[in-house]
Amino acid sequence: MTYPTDPSHDALVDELRRLRAKGLVGLRTLRLRELLDAAVACGLAAPGSVGPAGVEALVRKAVEELGGGRLGDAAAYTFGLPPGTRDWPAQDRRRRSAEIYGVGVDRFRKRYERVVLGETADAVLRLAARTAVPESTDRREPAAHEPDPSEAGTRAPPPRQVVPLSVGSRTVPITVHTCSVEMLTGIHVIVSSANTYLELAHTFTTSLSARLRRAASRKGPSGEILDDTLARELATWMSRHGRSGLTVAPGTVVPTSAGDLAQRGIVRIYHAAVVAPRPGTNHYDIDPANISLAVANVFRLARAERVDFPGLRSVCLPLFGTGRGGLAEDVSITWIRAALTAELAEDDSWEVHFVARYPRTARTIVDGLRSDGQAPS
């Protein structure tokens, strides 16, 4: 098997939800293909294995990866990992997890249990990414360049790497971070991909906007959200501009404060509307040309905001439209690169960063920045 053809996050969450319902004693009756594939990738199960031992070992390692605390403890009881809880009924495990969070069972089920399952799925993906070595028969399109010698034999890109971007007759250094966005520090502007309603993802999900929303919010001593800063400021902007309940033009970029992320040296969060919800469905449409427009508007806005925020000089971009928008990552970086090159040709004083949660995405960004390709006309 080739990782990083990672199992999708949603598929892992679905299998973890089924495991929660059955518990470890029900592993033999479940067919958890994605979890078993991840266990094989992590070296916890032999290829072709159908036994439950590898999946149980993987879930235990994933829960350990959460690092304890309320989240880790609740995850352990959710799956029946502590001694003596292996055969507990699902309702008893859920009740104990709710007690850990200090909430009722129904509230835990509707909110916190989703967080537990989502974070455990993330931990599985991190474990697989760290231990997997891409095979030479990887089905992805070949990179447009030969890898640097410094990367030869590595299992994943470094957490921070600098890539030279060709801008005319010179090169401009671009920094690519492989981490979760809330771990970034000292970058003045972080850009998030948004829908044209400028409505943020729910705080219990794992998208970039959801993570920024959680990290920027002001929280109480038990982790409860006291001020949903980004959502509040976006709603204020929409109301002030007469767009409440309506859409903005694709490519629009709206600024908010960084909320609690200011403690990490972040000054502003920019929300770039690049995906348009398709009426009457759960799907989205995206015109890749709007990605280049959004990038241009990010720098236009940043230049304008230097009046109120002197010294604003560093910007971190994501891959736009590759989540719910469904756009291929290599297509997204192609359109970003075209707009970015044009901006830096006019002013290369900007410090430009990219953030990627998974190594595969980081590699796509690096390949795209090094490529000489142009965005389609």
Rank of each mutant, 00 (worst) to 15 (best):
K61G: 01
L71K: 01
R109G: 10
G69N: 08
L44T: 11
V163A: 05
P159L: 06
A98W: 00
R93W: 04
P134Y: 00
R93T: 08
P173T: 06
S180Q: 13
P164F: 01
P83K: 13
G104A: 10
A132M: 06
C179F: 07
R170T: 10
D122I: 09
V103P: 00
V133M: 08
E64N: 09
P134G: 07
T78R: 01
V116Y: 00
E65K: 15
A143S: 13
G54V: 01
A128R: 13
W88S: 03
Q91R: 13
R86M: 14
A62T: 06
C179A: 15
A76Q: 06
P149E: 15
R111Y: 10
A132I: 02
A156H: 15
V116P: 02
L58Y: 12
V133F: 02
A74D: 00
T171S: 14
G43S: 08
T131K: 13
L71W: 01
I174Q: 01
E119H: 09
A143I: 01
C179R: 15
A144R: 07
L44Y: 14
R95E: 10
E56H: 05
G48W: 04
E65A: 07
E99K: 02
R126N: 08
R140S: 14
R107N: 12
L165A: 14
V115N: 00
R170Q: 13
L58I: 03
V115W: 00
R155W: 04
H177V: 08
V50T: 12
T131F: 12
G104R: 08
R93K: 12
V124T: 09
D122C: 15
A62Q: 04
G80I: 13
G67R: 04
E113Y: 00
A74F: 00
S169K: 11
D106W: 01
R160V: 15
F79A: 07
T175Q: 09
G72A: 03
V59F: 03
P142W: 13
P164V: 02
V162N: 08
T137R: 12
A98F: 00
T120E: 03
R139A: 13
P89L: 08
R60I: 02
E151Y: 10
G84V: 07
R86A: 15
R107W: 03
D106A: 15
R170E: 11
P89D: 13
R126M: 06
R170C: 02
G84W: 04
A45Q: 06
T178G: 03
E119F: 01
L127W: 06
P164S: 08
T171F: 05
G48L: 06
G68W: 11
A62E: 08
R86I: 14
P47V: 10
H145A: 15
Y101T: 00
Y112K: 06
E151W: 14
P83C: 07
V55M: 05
V133C: 09
V181W: 06
G69T: 05
P83Y: 04
R111V: 10
P83M: 05
G168P: 04
D87H: 12
P83Q: 13
A57Q: 14
P142E: 06
G67L: 11
V172E: 01
R107S: 11
L66E: 05
I174R: 02
R93I: 07
V167F: 12
R96C: 00
V116T: 02
R130Y: 03
G51I: 03
R93C: 12
S136N: 11
V59D: 02
